[in-house]
Design a protein around this nucleic acid. Structure first.
Lengths: 215, 215
DNA sequence: AAGGTTACATACTCAGTGGTATGTTCGCAA
DNA sequence: TTGCGAACATACCACTGAGTATGTAACCTT
């Protein structure tokens, strides 16, 4: 047993855990945290509980790892864009486009992550996992902050409507993230279909905060 | 025992059921369907299971009634606005404003409803309650349709961007409904605070679909 | 090759929960 | 006043599911 504890970053290098996380993400997405049994995850793996509990100490820990993996992927992909070139509007649009695309490509994990820490956890398992919980909330906050800063840039440049950045982030994320509620991947869905949806959502979100001269 | 079955419309006139529904909404919102025990709902009522099972045949039935009550309230309030006077943009804005306000005023019920039928139900309890499930999905669809039609009007009048109405509805609802994810009612929150948030969200959502001349 | 460790599977415990069966109280009609 | 049903409370059962304890086969090390 290597350093599995506090696995906030060290998923890499452990293929077995990765496979479990992917399977767990699917089942969690389908049924939510409470309604998902470890046995169900094991079955999807073609294995039994033993395999899961060998790598994870509890159901909550497994759930957390799904969240962490999802958030890290988002941050890893979007942060470079935020720090890249272009004005605030161009960068924000590129970020939104990529963000939306990831949501659809990686739907199972992202759906779990985006929905946020369902309240059931905050109340129930909170005490025992308070530390991990904080890390996750921190990750979510960091991610939102990446957007908030670009938005702040845009506001100061007079590109975006004049709102508190943290507040402006909400409807912006909303327009994008809401897709985790309604989007159902269709068979025969091409890459272009996904791109089309991403462009549409990004378009609405961008117009929502762009300071344009409306008639 | 009067005609409790198929209570899709007849909540009115039954104060006892109403009280149960309100309590249930709070607990369901806090913990989700699966993690909410009937005992927990009963405790919030200062009663025991007996009281609940006297009026409801199952936990699912109770959950459904929360959804129905929430959706009916929305439809009841927004439909008149949709059929009212003003051009599409004016009506849509008024609808969004009222919609958002209801979400905040009635957060517990609406949060449960907006989150949608968590997948856990579709798979698990589906068979036994297939009929009720269809009614609820129908209600949600009807509600979205109210918006879709106004949006369609706006598109044909050249007010809104040219998108399939059903698709345009998604980011629009997203910008508004996302508040059920992040909004936490604060003590000392005045009516004006709520109105302020409603205006901000509505503003972003409207700009998102308005065909404006962006610089 | 012997001992140890990893990576699981199997078998079991036990608390929590949905639902039911059975009281019990109270209002009301005859 | 009596009886009866509505409106609950109490007691109980059956089952699910998280977590654990124990077995075991393969592999790795020396």
């Amino acid at each position: 047993m290597e350093a599995n504890t506090s696995s906030l970053l060290s998923l890499t290098g452990n293929e077995a855990r990765d496979e479990i996380v992917r399977a767990a993400a699917e089942v969690f997405m389908e049924f939510g945290f409470a309604a998902t049994s470890i046995d169900a995850v094991a079955e999807r793996l073609g294995a039994t509980k033993g395999r899961i509990y060998h790598y994870y100490g509890s159901k909550a820990e497994l759930y957390f790892d799904v969240q962490i993996a999802a958030m890290e992927k988002l941050i890893r992909e979007i942060e470079p864009i935020a720090k890249g070139s272009g004005n605030a509007a161009e960068r924000l649009e590129a970020m939104a486009l990529r963000h939306t695309t990831i949501l659809m490509e990686d739907l199972s994990m992202q759906k779990v992550a985006v929905r946020g820490l369902e309240r059931e956890l905050l109340g129930a398992v909170a005490a025992r996992h308070a530390k991990t919980l904080r890390s996750i909330i921190r990750l979510r906050d960091d991610y939102e902050q990446i957007f908030a800063e670009v938005i702040d840039d845009g506001i100061r440049d007079g590109l975006f409507v004049d709102l508190p950045p943290r507040l402006a982030t909400k409807p912006f994320f909303g327009a994008l993230n809401w897709l985790t509620v309604w989007y159902v991947p269709r068979r025969l869905q091409t890459v272009e279909d996904i791109a089309e949806i991403a462009r549409t959502l990004t378009g609405c979100a961008m117009r929502g905060i762009l300071k344009g001269a409306h008639p």
